[in-house]
Amino acid sequence: MQQVGSLLVWIVLAFLVATWIALFARRLSPQKAGTLWGIVALPVLAFGLYLGLLWAPPDVLMGEVYRIMYVHFPSWIGTGAGYLTAFVCSLLYIRSRDLRFDSWASAGAEIGLVFNATGLITGSIWGRPTWGVWWTWDPRLTWTAIMAVTFAGYLVLRALMEDPEARARASSLVAIIGFATLPIVYFSVRWWRTLHQPQSSPETVDPQMVVALRTMMLAFLLIFGYLLTRRFALAQLRAEAELAALEPDELEMEAAGD
C-alpha cells in the first residue's frame, strides 16, 4: 500500500504538470482542464480518505482524533492557491484592464475563502479534544483567521459595488494590498505569540501518515482547480448575460450606420 500510495502521488503530480503545460500551450481550455481535474479528483480523494481514515495508524498521543488533519492540512493548500490566484490575477487586471482576470481573481478569493473556512472549522474541532478549547491564539491559526477577514472584506466590497470596472479595480487593489501584507502579518503574529509560549517542536511522523497526507493534499488541489474553473465559468456566464443585453444594441448600431 505504501508503494501504491507513493506511486499514485507521483502519477497525479505528473498529470497536474502535464495539464498545466497543455494549458500554457493552449492545447487545453481552462474549462476542460477543470473537468479533467474534477474527474481525477474523485478517485484520488476516495483513495486518500481510505489511506487517512482507515489505513494509516492512529497517533501515539492523540489516538483517532488526529485523523481530522487529513482534511485540515490540505485545506490550507486550497486556501493558499485561491489567495495566490486572487493576488496574481488582480495584478494582471490592473495591468491589462481585462475583466476576465477580474473573474479569475474573484473566483480565487471565493474558493480560497471556502477552503480557509474549512481549515478554521476543522482546526477548531481538532483543538477541542486536543487543547480543551475551541479556539486558541496559536500563531498560524490566528494568521489564517486574519487572512479570512482580509478576503471576506474583499468579497463584501465587491458585493457593494455595481459598476463592473469600478468593482474590479477597487477589489483588485484590496487583494493586492491584503496579500502583500500577509507575510508581515504572519511574522508579527509569531513574534506576538512566541513571547508567551514556545513553538511546539515537530514530531516524528509515520511514513504511512505522510503518504496519506500527500494524497489528500493532491486531491484537494485537484478539487480546488475544478471549483476555480467552475466559479470562473459562472462569472463569465454573468458577464455574457450582460453582453447579451448589448448584442441587439450593437446590431442596431450597425444598421444605423448603413
Binding site: I146, T150, T181, V185, S188
Partner: peptide, 15 residues
C-alpha cells in the same frame, strides 16, 4: 468598509 479593510492590515502595527 474603511475599518473592515484597514484593520486586518494593521495587525503588525498593533502588535
Amino acid at each position: 468598509m474603511l475599518p473592515l479593510l484597514l484593520f486586518p492590515t494593521q495587525v503588525p502595527i498593533v502588535v
